[in-house]
Write a protein that binds this DNA or RNA. Structure first.
Lengths: 291, 291
DNA sequence: GCGAACGTTGCGACAAGCGCAACTTTCGCA
DNA sequence: TGCGAAAGTTGCGCTTGTCGCAACGTTCGC
């Protein structure tokens, strides 16, 4: 679905994929974390190996491991990215970029990630007009596709649609929550789950994995609404920990220990691949290089 | 005619083009020397500038000059290439590449460039079987296209056909020569010129530029044949200085000073772009990185 | 003032690289 | 011992980036 990218920035994607894989030693893990298909990861590594003329990984039946060449190349990759980062870090002139950048963010992202992300951007480029829009995560990707937003800060699904590229900025746990001062409905429901979106999907997977579906009491739209219902005692809710910690009703909420814990939940930046060549988008994107 | 290349090696092409342009400050010069079309050079620079968000060159009516950002990026580019070169220079295992590599070279190249080029390759990869074929420069590119050779070492035209990429390894002057012990036919002919090929084209351009065509006495096939005819007193010849210096009959040849001097003559390495991903070809290609 | 030189841009074509989905192999569990 | 899941690879169609050619706008020299 995606086409070839561009030179300077895209070459680094190969190095990043390699470095992540060199650490995880797990194609699937890296594929998920870096939001590329397993096929792309496999072929990216194959391309590297072909161009270098060496195998970088030993694929044993019992997992993969770095070859000697792989370790050597890892050192190169680290240094190359550091060099690039050093170049990008020396911000040259603060006020040379102008224009408008439309950012779409979930409410959660607004409260948590966005300040850390946009503060340095604003410092570097004070002339840029920032438009900020909010909504749920599902809408974020649609807005990007439609061109109504330039960047999105939201939960990122492992597989991004079409021409979008994402970068995970942080990972938060999903936690099960109940009202603190009400009888505990427990881990068998009833549940209060988001109507749709990544959290809902993760919650469904968790429920399925446990084998005991449990009743769904309400399906509110939005995390804050969900927490409000939970605080009212409607049932057991599932939210990202990050949301809970920034919620206005967190004092009335208790976290239930769960085993197995629901899978972690990546939150990050997402842009249209083709937009990486726009100076404004590239500038913001490059700010996240070290995350 | 060419498609996009591949990551690691191809990204460096952009940096190399940039560095050459940063030194020459002349799009046409760099375009010729690096064997890319002016359009490609322009757009490569434009791409860099877009991705970086800065102009790298000031295009004044009186030529181009580096901007402050351009100078900064030049430092990065130099370091990035040095880093890559350092990685490639540490040859890991000497004997890890095997197979066969068919090299096509002109006679001149065999005598001059080839030893310097192939000696380190052979040291690094003794297991590789080298097939060496000789012929004239025009045939070299045809052989490459037909797949009958993997690499060519020959004079390289400024514009390479189709899917070939070249890298200039050295530049030699064209010199005008006569028999030392015969009456000097002088700069107005008759001339002894190669029947075809790059030298003939350059000689024709030189003749046209002087405005006095002069007669063509013989059109031998091959530089050695040409020098033999010149030594026999058939007329004034045009050959690359490199050929003259390695000729068996050089003692019987005298060089005529010419003004303006014929244009210099680039000799280099040429491969199919798509072959850069073949380990053997890539290994040889990377050996020329610092030339 | 006309022509050459220089850099840029429209255009058609080619092929690199992506995701999807099917495949192979291996491991876990009954 | 056999079936199912998991992990990595590969065939395929499609998108899209980049190339060279050729036409263009501008500037300088004669």
């Amino acid at each position: 679905m995606k086409g070839p990218g561009h030179r300077v920035l895209d070459d680094q994607r190969g190095l990043r994929l390699f470095l992540h894989l060199a650490q995880s030693l797990n194609f699937g893990r890296t594929s998920l974390d870096c939001h590329v298909s397993p096929a792309t990861l496999t072929r990216t590594v194959q391309r590297l190996e072909t161009e270098l003329g060496h195998r970088l990984f030993d694929r044993g039946p019992r997992g993969v491991s770095l070859t000697a060449e792989g370790r050597r190349f890892r050192e190169y990759a680290v240094q190359a990215l550091e060099l690039w980062q050093a170049y990008r870090d020396e911000r040259p002139d603060p006020a040379d970029l102008t224009g408008r950048l439309t950012v779409f963010a979930t409410v959660t992202a607004c409260q948590t990630l966005l300040p850390d992300l946009l503060a340095p951007f604003r410092t570097a480029h004070p002339q840029v007009r920032l438009d900020l829009r909010t909504g749920d995560a599902a809408a974020a990707l649609a807005r990007l596709d439609e061109g109504e937003a330039d960047v999105a800060v939201a939960g990122i699904p492992a597989r991004l649609p079409g021409p979008l590229v994402g970068r995970t900025l942080t990972v938060t746990d999903l936690v099960l929550v109940t009202a603190r001062d009400r009888p505990d409905p427990g881990l068998d429901g009833p549940f209060v789950l988001p109507q749709r979106g990544l959290v809902r999907e993760a919650a469904d997977r968790w429920l399925r994995a446990r084998g005991r579906p449990g009743a769904v009491a309400c399906e509110p739209d939005g995390h804050e609404a969900l927490l409000a219902l939970v605080a009212l005692g409607c049932g057991t809710g599932v939210v990202p920990r990050l949301v809970l910690e920034h919620s206005a009703v967190r004092d009335r909420i208790a976290v239930l220990p769960a085993d197995p814990a629901p899978e972690p939940f990546p939150i990050g930046l997402c842009v249209r691949r083709s937009d990486l060549r726009r100076p404004l988008v590239a500038a913001l994107w490059s700010l996240t290089a070290h995350w």
